[in-house]
Design a protein around this nucleic acid. Structure first.
Length: 230
DNA sequence: GCGACAG
DNA sequence: ATCTTGTCGC
């Protein structure tokens, strides 16, 4: 497991962080379809916190997209780099997530984030941010609708409804299990929304949450547990 | 001004 | 996110 330092130029205030988002937003690529679902590799990233000890642990787990077997994994720990502020989540997670991705022994392929991409107040959520910084195709799959609105999708798995910011579609409420609360998918970088939803369905053969996120969540929690005070 | 608000 | 036991059900 690697240890990370907070970058020297990391924003210190909410105002600075929003300015960074506005600047990087222009570099997001939305036109590319992205890798075909069910092929190659898919990587899940997630983070766990211990605000008491000021520690954050991140995990990156690479799966074979067709079998969903774990191909590789890596973790990283660091200091909490930003407080939780709705809309600024990326500044809390990204330094450690980048370190975990760097520690992987193989290319990650498509990266699935636990949170949003385009579905964001300034259209630049965690998945967008991570995509621009790494150049990798990314998508966001969130468990909650944040401030956005949606109509309940039909009951069967695979049904979807637009996730709306006013009248603008910023993502999709996608049912991954029959009659179970949908997940909220949005585009990050270099992936299409239809493709992002197809990937999400390919990653949810048994549970509401993508296997990528479930594996990364379990691993970063374990890494946090096993991180003892220095 | 007040409340709501990914993780 | 995190604090937290048992419990109902496939």
């Amino acid at each position: 497991m690697t240890t990370v330092r907070i970058p020297q130029d990391w924003p210190a205030t909410e105002e600075q962080a929003r300015a960074v988002q506005d600047a990087l937003r222009t570099r997001v690529i939305l036109g590319e379809p992205g890798p075909p679902p069910g092929t190659g590799r898919v990587t899940g990233v997630d983070v766990a916190y211990d605000d008491e000890r000021d520690v954050v642990a991140a995990a990156a787990v690479v799966l074979d997209a067709s079998t969903l077997d774990v191909v590789a994994e890596a973790t990283a720990v660091g200091r909490v780099s930003f407080p939780y502020v709705p809309g600024l989540l990326a500044f809390r997670e990204i330094p450690t997530v980048l370190a975990a991705l760097d520690a992987l022994p193989c290319p990650p392929g498509l990266v699935v984030c636990d949170g949003y991409g385009l579905a964001h107040p300034r259209r630049f959520g965690l998945a967008s941010h991570l995509g621009v910084l790494t150049g990798l195709p990314t998508i966001g799959v969130a468990k909650n609708p944040f401030t956005f609105s949606y109509d309940d999708p039909d009951t069967p798995r695979g049904s979807a409804a637009a996730l709306l910011a006013g009248s603008e579609e910023v993502g999709r409420a996608l049912r991954t299990r029959d009659a179970v609360k949908p997940v909220f998918v949005s585009v990050g970088h270099r992936v299409t929304l239809d493709n992002a939803c197809a990937h999400t369905l390919a990653l949810t053969p048994a549970y509401r949450i993508p296997e990528t996120t479930r594996r990364a969540d379990a691993l970063c929690r374990k890494a946090l547990r096993e991180t003892h005070p220095a």
